[in-house]
Structure formats: structure tokens, C-alpha cells
Write a protein that binds this DNA or RNA. Structure first.
Length: 568
RNA sequence: GGCGCGGUAGCUCAGUUGGUUAGAGCGAACGACUCAUAAUCGUUAGGUCGGGAGUUCAAAUCUCCCCCACGCCA
């Protein structure tokens, strides 16, 4: 038994995430957490909402609510949806928690004491009407280069010229349209990542077997141009963690908050404190401090590729820079994007299926199965309704669901709703040998967090049951040799149990249904032969309703139209 | 413009350190079966591995050039 700390990239607070976000971090993290728990390992699986920053303030304003209230509500909404998808977080925290405030301030103080923070005076655009400094992308104006009227403060989308907000002709705020903008001097703190370049690079070089996607992104940021750059860790905003030097005030930084990229990953740690403080666990430092018991912890992070730089460079810079014995990540599993029907999912245009909508139209397990079996591991993946329909109908209804159905109904009609008696012969032994190999493959892929391959291996295990039944044909056997047929059915019922156990990380609800119907436990099959003897002659079972109803063409067309764009 | 991940059967994808007739699933055609959600099982068809040049006894796999798609950055 080992100890595994697992975190999923924390989703931003301003709205409900789409399926591409889900499959890029939370869902595969849940798959892995569930699997490790089933194998008997001690797991702490954490996630949270990322709540600070300008987008949260603007979303709250649009909703007409104070930002703290808005975030609290949206956190509960996201928590409920996560629960609906069966995401088995040990705790779903909030980056705005008191624990994260204190910890983020403590890290800043520590880094400052070690001379890894410097103050920089820079010019930023202030909007009187909005009453705030405007990030570059919230300023638009006419491009001085090409005359394009909607050039943004950081770049002109028309001629692609790199811009400063002060270059724009007739600049205005995209929040309010205000033109009463003014350039002001403001002071910010920068984390001196540049002096830590070698240390971080050295650390990354010690990481073995990371996905190419992960290391190539990290290396690029380390070596491109002038190498790793210092990065601002503060902003002129109201909503965030107040800048403090540990628990002391930071002269000159009054009214400023930490930049969201700095406090968000620290929430991974603070989340464990929250987990303890709400009474779900104890001794959180045992998971995070290598001097307090975390040296035997394996820490795995899941995230989309856009988050890789923060997890390979920024967060490690924070931790390494502190020179404190915090647990560093052991393995980063990163994902590419899921595209929607030939284009991108778009939150702003409401293109694609969002998590709440997905649960409205189909059970979570259906989404879990399809998304995980098509996880964008090696390259971007593509969601189409046509593929989704044929894939889940085939895999979940025809291969798995129908297997359960045909066995249980056959047994009920020819024997009873109890496991019949009969001993296994050569064909059964051969199947057990075959499955022993297939289960070993499945485990190997799950251990390696090869999501698609795991799904394929699991499916092959399901198929093996249908192959066996088709070859042995108990419906024929029963006419000449009822005892042999009884053995075949007994094996079939035990296969349902086996499938229920093995499938649980992917489709926990259907697995539960299968195991409940077989009225059995969910012990992992360390030995397949033994596992397939678990249901004994005479053990009662029930015939479950069909596990999954197929998606028909009308539904598919209806949904394809409904989710093509413009949500709400 | 620079960089990165890719470009393998109609579709979605596997193909470790270069080595026997390039694989899987879906879809298609045909056949078997009839317990089951008209489900299942089997067989077959389908690819000049984006294009070109090179290295090698041997390249989807290495090198160079080009094309395409996506993404990141300046």
C-alpha cells in the first residue's frame, strides 16, 4: 500500500466548465484516484475553485452581486455538478479560503526574506469610470499601425502587431466603454524566477518519464529567448489575497492583492488544510511536508496543456524558492484539448456541451466513458455527436449492458434468481487464463495513467465475456447437458461481478448497479481465478434494469442543434 | 516570423531503442447464432504510413527540405 496525493487543476470560478475542461483534468484525475483507492492505496484527492482576479469581478458585476457572494454561489454550483459527475474529491476547496490567504502571504514573506522578490514600478492604465486599473486585454482602441478599430491593448488582432495600451488611438475600456483613461505609475512585486532557472531546470531533469507534452513545454519556457523571466505576483485589484509580508503589512503594497497565478497553486496545499479543518481528515502536513511524513507520498497532478507552465515552473519556483520541505510534484499528466464538432468549445459563444447540460440529457457514466476513452492524450481529440452516439451505444449498451442482460435473464428463465451449480471445465479455464492476462494489461495501463489504453483494455475484457458466451452457447448446452450450462451461467454471473469491480473507475454508477444486482462485494481481483469463484451456487441475485438506454437518431440530431452555439 | 504537438485504412486512434506479409476499435459487406437492449460472435474488404530527397542490408520509425492542421510565443 502506497500513499498518493492527487490534484486536478482548479477550475476558474466564473461559470460552468465545458466537457473539454472536464476531460482535461478533473475526470482523468478522478479515474486515477478511484483506481488507486480500489487497489487499496491511501489517496488524498484534492480540487478547488480558482476564485480571484478580474474575470471573477466582472462576472460578479454582470450578475449584479458582490464578488464574494458570487464566488460562494458559483463554488456551490460547481461542487454540485462535480458531484453529479461522480468526481470523488476528498475535498473541493476554494482559493479564497482563509487557509489560502495565510499560506499565500506566508510564502510571499518567506520568498521576500530570501531575497527572491523585488519591487518594480511600472505604468498601467487606470480607468476613472471603472474605478480600476485595466489589464491590457480590457483596453481597446484604434491600431496605430493598420487603423483597425478594435485593437486590444496587448496586440492588434488585425495586423498582429504587438502593442502597448499607450500606443492605441482613442483607447477605451471594454468593460464600460469609458474613455477617461489615464496612465499611472504603480508598484508591483516580482518573483525572481530568473535566478532560479538552473535550479528549476535541474529539478525538471530529475523527473523521469514525464509526458513529452509536459517536458517540452517546460523546456521551452526555460530556454526560449532570455530564459525564464521574473514574473509579477501582485495586482491592483480589490478581490484577492491582500499583499502581506507573512503576517506583517508590506509598506507600499497597501490595497494590492496577489496575482491569481501565484495564489491558485498554493491552494493545492491550503486545500489539504481545509480538508482537515472541516473535519474530513487529520494531519494534513503528512501529505505536504516531507519533514512531517510526506516523504513517502507520490504526488500526481492533472491539467490541460495551458496549465503546464504554471505547474512545471511557477509553482515549483515558489516551493523551491521557499527552501522549505514542501512536497514537489512527482508526475504531471497533461492533456491536449477536446474540440467540438470541427471547432473549439467556446464558453463565450456557448458552443459545445457544458457540464450542467451534459447531466441534464444523459447519465454521468455515459459521458465519463466516452470522454475518458477518447481522452486527448497524444494530440487534440474531437467530439462529434455521430461518434459519441455510435461509441456509447456500442460499448455501454451492446457490449457491456447487453452482456449483463443476457446472462441474468437467461439464468432467471432457465434456472432461478440464484447462482446455479456446476464446475468449470476447459473452456472456462481458458477464459480465466485469457482474462488473467487482460486484467494485468488493464492494471498496467491504469498504473501508467494511460487513459485511452486503459479504456481499450477494459473494453476488451467486456468483449471476452461475449466471445465466451457465443462460443459456449449455454442456450444450446442446456438442452443436452444442464449441469454444464449451469457452470457456464455461474461463470457469466461471476463475470458481471468482475466487470462491476474493474469498471468502477470509469463508470462508478453502472458498476454499483452491477455489484448491487449480484449482491456482492467489490474486492479487487488480485487473482482472477479466485475472483470468478466468488459467487457461489445458491447465492441470490437480481436482474437489473438495462444499464444504459441507447441514444437514438432523433435525440442526437436534437442535441447537435441545441449545442451548436449561443448558450442561454 | 519563431517554436511546439501532430499529419498512419471511410472514422477515431496504436505503433518501445529502425528489422519478418503496417495493427485495434468503429463503420461496411458477407456468414453464424437466437439467451439478450434487432443485441452477440466470426470472416472479408480497405492504407504507395502528408510529399520529396538522403543515410542504411533494412525506415511509418533516423537526417534535410517542403506542404497541411492545431496551439503557444514574439
Amino acid at each position: 500500500m502506497a500513499r498518493h496525493l492527487i490534484t486536478s487543476a482548479i477550475p476558474y470560478i466564473n461559470g460552468i466548465k465545458h466537457l473539454g475542461n472536464l476531460v482535461g483534468s478533473q475526470l482523468p484525475a478522478d479515474l486515477y484516484a478511484r483506481y488507486l483507492r480500489q487497489r487499496g492505496h491511501e489517496v488524498l484527492f484534492l480540487c478547488a475553485t480558482d476564485e480571484h482576479g478580474t474575470p471573477a469581478e466582472l462576472a460578479a458585476a454582470k450578475a449584479g452581486k458582490p464578488v464574494a457572494e458570487y464566488c460562494a454561489e458559483m463554488h456551490d454550483v460547481q461542487a454540485e455538478i462535480a458531484d453529479g459527475f461522480g468526481l470523488s474529491f476528498d475535498h473541493f476547496g476554494r482559493s479564497s479560503s482563509p487557509q489560502n490567504h495565510a499560506l499565500t502571504q506566508a510564502f510571499a514573506g518567506r520568498l521576500n526574506a530570501l531575497d527572491l522578490i523585488r519591487e518594480v514600478t511600472e505604468e498601467q492604465v487606470y480607468s476613472h469610470t471603472d474605478g480600476r486599473f485595466l489589464p491590457d486585454r480590457y483596453i481597446e482602441g484604434t491600431c496605430p499601425n493598420c487603423g483597425f478599430e478594435s485593437a486590444r491593448g496587448d496586440q492588434c488582432d488585425n495586423c498582429t502587431k504587438q502593442l502597448d495600451p499607450t500606443d492605441l488611438i482613442a483607447p477605451h475600456s471594454t468593460i464600460s466603454g469609458a474613455t477617461d483613461l489615464e496612465v499611472r505609475e504603480t508598484k508591483h512585486l516580482y518573483l525572481r524566477q530568473s535566478v532560479m532557472k538552473d535550479q528549476i531546470e535541474e529539478w525538471i531533469d530529475t523527473r523521469q518519464g514525464w509526458p513529452i507534452l509536459t517536458t517540452s513545454i517546460a523546456k521551452k519556457w526555460l530556454t526560449d529567448g532570455d530564459g525564464l523571466q521574473d514574473r509579477g505576483i501582485t495586482r491592483d485589484l480589490d478581490w484577492g489575497i491582500p499583499v502581506k509580508n507573512g503576517d506583517q503589512d508590506w509598506p507600499g503594497m497597501e490595497g494590492k492583492v496577489f496575482y491569481v497565478w501565484f495564489d491558485a497553486p498554493i491552494e493545492y496545499i491550503a486545500c489539504a488544510q481545509e480538508w482537515q479543518d472541516v473535519g474530513k481528515g487529520a494531519d494534513w502536513e503528512r501529505w505536504w511536508r516531507t519533514d512531517k511524513g510526506a516523504d513517502d507520498v507520490t504526488y500526481t497532478q492533472f491539467m490541460g496543456k495551458d496549465n503546464v507552465p504554471f505547474h512545471t515552473l511557477s509553482f515549483p519556483a515558489t516551493i523551491l524558492g521557499s527552501q522549505q520541505p514542501w512536497k514537489l510534484v512527482d508526475y504531471i499528466k497533461s492533456f491536449n484539448y477536446l474540440n467540438y464538432d470541427g471547432g473549439q468549445f467556446s464558453t463565450s459563444r456557448g458552443r459545445g456541451v457544458f457540464m450542467d447540460q451534459a447531466l441534464e440529457i444523459l447519465p454521468a457514466d455515459v459521458w465519463r466513458w466516452w470522454l475518458l476513452s477518447h481522452a486527448p492524450e497524444s494530440s487534440d481529440a474531437e467530439f462529434t455527436w455521430q461518434a459519441f452516439q455510435t461509441d456509447v451505444n456500442k460499448d455501454l449498451a451492446d457490449v457491456l449492458g447487453n452482456f449483463v442482460s443476457r446472462i441474468t435473464k437467461f439464468c432467471r428463465s432457465k434456472f432461478s434468481e440464484a447462482v446455479p451449480d456446476g464446475s468449470y471445465g476447459p473452456a472456462e479455464k481458458a477464459l480465466i487464463a485469457d482474462l488473467t492476462g487482460k486484467v494485468a494489461q488493464y492494471q498496467a495501463h491504469m498504473d501508467a495513467i494511460e487513459v485511452r489504453k486503459s479504456a481499450a483494455a477494459l473494453r476488451a475484457i467486456w468483449v471476452a465475456g461475449n466471445e465466451y458466451l457465443q462460443a459456449e452457447a449455454p442456450w444450446s448446452t442446456i438442452k443436452e447437458d444442464p449441469e454444464k450450462a449451469a457452470a457456464q451461467v455461474r461463470l457469466g454471473l461471476n463475470l458481471i461481478r468482475l466487470y462491476g469491480i474493474l469498471s468502477a473507475p470509469f463508470i462508478p454508477t453502472m458498476s454499483r448497479t452491477m455489484l448491487d444486482a449480484m449482491q456482492t462485494d467489490d474486492a479487487w481481483p488480485d487473482d482472477v481465478a479466485t475472483a470468478l469463484e466468488t459467487l457461489k451456487p445458491g447465492d441470490a441475485f437480481t436482474v437489473p434494469d438495462n444499464l444504459f438506454s441507447k441514444i437514438n437518431d432523433d435525440q442526437r440530431e436534437d442535441w447537435a442543434g441545441r449545442f451548436a452555439g449561443t448558450r442561454d
